[in-house]
Amino acid sequence: MYKIICPLIILLFCISCSSETPNPTPTEALYFPPLTGTTWETKTISSLGWNQNAVQPLLDYLELKHSKSFLILVNGRIVLENYFNGHDANSLWYWASAGKTLTSTMTGIAQQEGLLNINNKVSQYIGTGWTSEPLEKENLITCKNLLTMTSGIEDIANGDAVTPESLQYKADASTRWAYHNVYVKLQDVIAQASGQTWNTYFNTKLRDKIGMNGTWIQVDNNSVYWSTTRSMARFGLLISNKGKWENTVIVNENYINEATNTSQSINLGYGYLWWLNGKSSYHLPQSQAVFQGSIIPNAPNDMFMALGKNDQKIYIIPSKKMVIVRMGDAADNVNLALSDFDDVLWQKINALYQ
């Protein structure tokens, strides 16, 4: 009798558990806007369960701090899109150093096409004498050193210039982290390796494939990207999806993982031209000081960032499936890529969903 009852009890228990367990909520599919046109799906604050009362204080702060645009994507859909101070959805604005991440991404594309290897020396692609360093020191500098700001080239006296006479030896490559405009030599590397101009390769391999607009404009010694806010958001969406646009791999996931994680042991808050939040310490541009803690304490620890002069921002937060873009003038009339503005802004953003 026991042998009969026991299996029956077990069977009834399993049926009971099955009937009481709710079906899991289906995960909302990640959305990608069409490559052409203005169509872009949206989500409302209320559908996300966010706090509508927190929206206006956020927008007021952004306008007060000289913003021109602000956009939040969740799962690829627009939740907030606002323009200020005469700017609109069709206006172009500069990315400043936030555009370094475009160069990082293009380097990954060129590598996956077999045109270069980031571990190879820069001079293999653009020839020797591109710096004023002794040849044995110049040949220590790899493409990866340019991606990670560890070239060892003097970073203070020569400003943004990247002519050979301006690129002077400071330390051996890989032994020192210093923010430097020399990363733009990667654009020369890609042009030489691909046999195309930088603009042509960029447009065909990245811009046009994800429906961005915009153009590179030469400013002094730097090539600066200008685009609409939505184009900046498209790029953020691509990177948040590990380099894949819908079913098309633009840049492989392994490279994106490398680019958006600590890339060397000197500045834990830096990847391949991406800034990383939530690390135990970090360096800032024009400083050799080590700062303890997260770069933006109020922001999520898994966030990584494209940051540019006068507070151009792309924040990517994988845990929240969120991409945030801010364009505009300097929040506090200073020329820093990172300032207290970020932390206060994140107080306002957190109020939306906490």
Rank of each mutant, 00 (worst) to 15 (best):
K313W: 10
S240I: 05
N241A: 07
G271Y: 01
I349W: 00
D340P: 13
W346S: 01
G269R: 00
N252Y: 09
G328V: 07
L336V: 15
N252G: 07
N254C: 06
D332W: 14
S339D: 10
Q288T: 14
E246F: 14
S319Q: 14
N298K: 08
G236M: 01
A330Y: 15
W245F: 10
P300D: 05
S319N: 10
N241K: 06
S280N: 13
V334C: 12
G308W: 02
N252S: 09
L336E: 12
W274M: 02
A299L: 06
E246H: 12
S265F: 10
N267R: 03
E246L: 15
V251G: 02
M305S: 02
K320E: 10
F304K: 03
G278M: 05
E253I: 06
I317F: 05
A289Q: 15
N301E: 12
K348E: 08
I316G: 01
D329N: 11
Q264F: 12
G278A: 06
D340M: 14
A330G: 15
G308M: 05
K321D: 12
Y270A: 03
L237D: 05
H283G: 07
A330F: 11
D340V: 14
G328T: 08
S263K: 01
M303S: 01
Q288V: 14
V334R: 14
L307Y: 02
K279I: 08
A259R: 00
A259N: 02
E253K: 10
S319K: 12
N277W: 04
K242L: 11
N298S: 10
A259W: 00
Q292P: 10
D311F: 07
G293I: 14
G269N: 03
Y282I: 05
F341D: 02
L307R: 01
S263D: 04
I256C: 00
V323D: 02
L238A: 08
H283M: 14
Y255S: 04
E258G: 04
L268K: 07
F291S: 11
N267F: 01
G271I: 03
P297S: 07
R234K: 15
G236W: 00
G269T: 05
G308I: 04
G308Y: 04
N247W: 15
